[in-house]
Amino acid sequence: MEKKSSGSGVRLERRNILKLMATLPAAALAPVTPFASSVAMAMPQEAGAQNDAAVYQPKVFHPHELRTIRILSDMILPADERSCSASEAGVPEFIDGWLHVKQGNLLDEIRGGLTWLDMASNRSFQFDFADCSIQRQKQILDRIAYPEKAAPEDASAVVFFNSLRDLVVSGFFTSRQGIRDLPYVGNQPQQQWTGCPPQVRAKLGLVDS
C-alpha cells in the first residue's frame, strides 16, 4: 500500500485506517483481556498461504481459457495503490473451482463467452483475445462491458461479461486482499456490542432517538 494521497477526505480516512490495520497484527484488533484468550482457544487455526498459481491444475478450464481468464480478471480488477490485482488474489483459480461445482449453465455461459471473445478478436484483429495488445483487448471489452450502450448483436456477450464481472468481483472481495481493501473489519469477537458508531451516525444524519 502506497502512501500517495489524493482524492476525497473519506478516501484518506479509509486509507489511514487501512494503514493502521496493516501495522497491527490481527490479534491486536481483538480486546486483550481474559475474554480474548478464552475465545482464542475456540478459534480455528488459519491455514497457510495458498493459490500458488505456478502449480495450479485447472478443474474446468483448458490452458488457453485459463490464460484468457487471468487477463480478463486483471482487466476487470487491476492492481492500484490500495490493493493487488484480481489474479494476485487468486481469482482465476476461484472461478475455475466455482464453475467446477456450480450447477446450472454458468460454465457454458463463461466458456461460450470466452469463445465469443476469441471470435470477435480474430474477426477484428486476426488474433485470439489473449494475444492482442491491451488496447485492442479494451476495444473488444468496451463493446460488451456497458450494457446500456452495447449493440443488440452483442447482447449475449453482454450477459457473459456481466456474469464474469460478478465472478471476478466476488472472488476478489472474498480474498484476503479484497477483505482488507473494502475493508471488512468484522469477524473479530467483541466483548460487547455498541451498535452504529457515532461518526457513522453523524455522517448519516442520525440523531439519537
Binding site: 482487466m75 480488477l77 466455482w98 456497458y146 450494457p147 460478478d166 468481483v169 466476488s170 472481495f173 472474498t174
Partner: peptide, 22 residues
Amino acid sequence: PMPGVLSGTQKLVGGGYGESLK
C-alpha cells in the same frame, strides 16, 4: 463478505471494468 458480494454492479454503475470499477 461471501461469494455474490457486490454482484449486479452493472445495474447501478452501468457496468465497466478496471480501476473505476474497483
